[in-house]
Structure formats: C-alpha cells, structure tokens
Computed example of a mutant assay.
Amino acid sequence: MSLHDDAVLVLKGYEGQEDLRQVYVGHLETHPDGMWKACRDGHVTASALVIDSGRGRVLLTLHKKMRMWLQMGGHCEPADGTLEEAALREATEESGIAGLTLLPGGPVRLDRHHTPCAWHLDVQYAALAPAGAVEAISDESLDLRWFAYDEVADVADDSVVRLVRATRDRL
C-alpha cells in the first residue's frame, strides 16, 4: 500500500472535523501527488505533539522558518510507509527523543494552514515521551522547550492550543 493510499484510509476513518476531513480526502482524490512538497496546490503533512503526561507538559519547537512555537512535524518523505510513521519520524527527528510512542486511536485532529511553500493539510498525532526523555535541538529549530499545558496559549497560536486540548481529551 502506498503512503497516499494509507492517508486516504486514515482520513476516511477519522471521526470528527467532517468538513475539513472531506477537503483532505477530496484533495488526495484529485491530486495523486498530494502527499509531496512538490504539489503546489497543497500537500498532506504529518505532525505530532510530544507530551510528558506525567508532568503535565508538552515539548514545542521554535521553528526556524516559521518563527513560531509549534508541535514537531513536516513533510512526508518517500521512505514513510504510513502517516503514523511520518509523524513519528518527524517528532523523533525534531525532538531528539528516542522511544516516542504515538497515542492509540489515530490522528488527534486536522489543521489546514498556509505556509511559504503551499497549503499544509496537517494530520496531527500525539506522541508520548518516555520517562526521563532528554530533548535535543535539530537543525530545523531555533529552540526547543517544555511548556506546562496552561502555558501553551501564552506562546503558541490557536492551532497548537486546540491540539493540546484535543490531546488532553484523548488522554
């Protein structure tokens, strides 16, 4: 099964955000290249909010290009077999934390936003950090920092706040 096929199945099975879900599915049905950065009409991306539920905090990256505090995530790559693999790869690369595990139940939410390269149709997961996890800044970050759940609204935009809320509801 291709990554494109996996994304269609994941999105068709996703419950919630019906209008936005239909936009994603429709995009993939009309764009065979809709998973890749080269698709200028927009592309599916995968992200994961790294959480330390035992300490009530999330790890955010100060994204080098966007200059915003965001969850880990980005473009899918040809080696990614599934959206979950893409989200976990991005979270691991950008956080520097080995041993992350995605929360069960599939994506936590969807978020469509415009970036300098195109529209991102982001499929958002949540990843649990193992006990004692130590983060390491990647080349894509200006900073990497843990924030208490209630601090996120002070540093991040509404999309991240909604992702934290949805993740906490899932926990």
Rank of each mutant, 00 (worst) to 15 (best):
R112S: 13
G34W: 00
V8T: 02
V164M: 02
R112F: 09
V10A: 07
T167V: 05
R57M: 02
D5K: 09
Q22A: 14
G96C: 11
W69E: 09
Q22P: 00
R21F: 03
G106C: 11
H43N: 08
G56K: 02
L28W: 04
G34L: 02
G132R: 10
V58I: 00
M68G: 08
G56E: 07
G34F: 03
L49T: 00
R145T: 07
E85P: 12
T92P: 06
V134S: 13
L121S: 06
W119P: 01
Y14N: 05
D41Y: 04
A127K: 03
A118T: 14
L11Q: 08
V134D: 05
K12E: 15
H63M: 05
D139M: 10
L59R: 01
E90A: 15
W69I: 08
M1G: 14
R168Y: 01
H43P: 03
D41Q: 14
M1V: 15
D33C: 11
L103T: 05
Y24K: 00
M72E: 02
D122L: 07
A131Y: 06
L62D: 09
T115C: 03
G81H: 11
E140D: 15
I137N: 03
W119D: 14
L121Q: 11
E85N: 04
A7V: 01
D111H: 14
L163S: 02
G99L: 08
M35P: 10
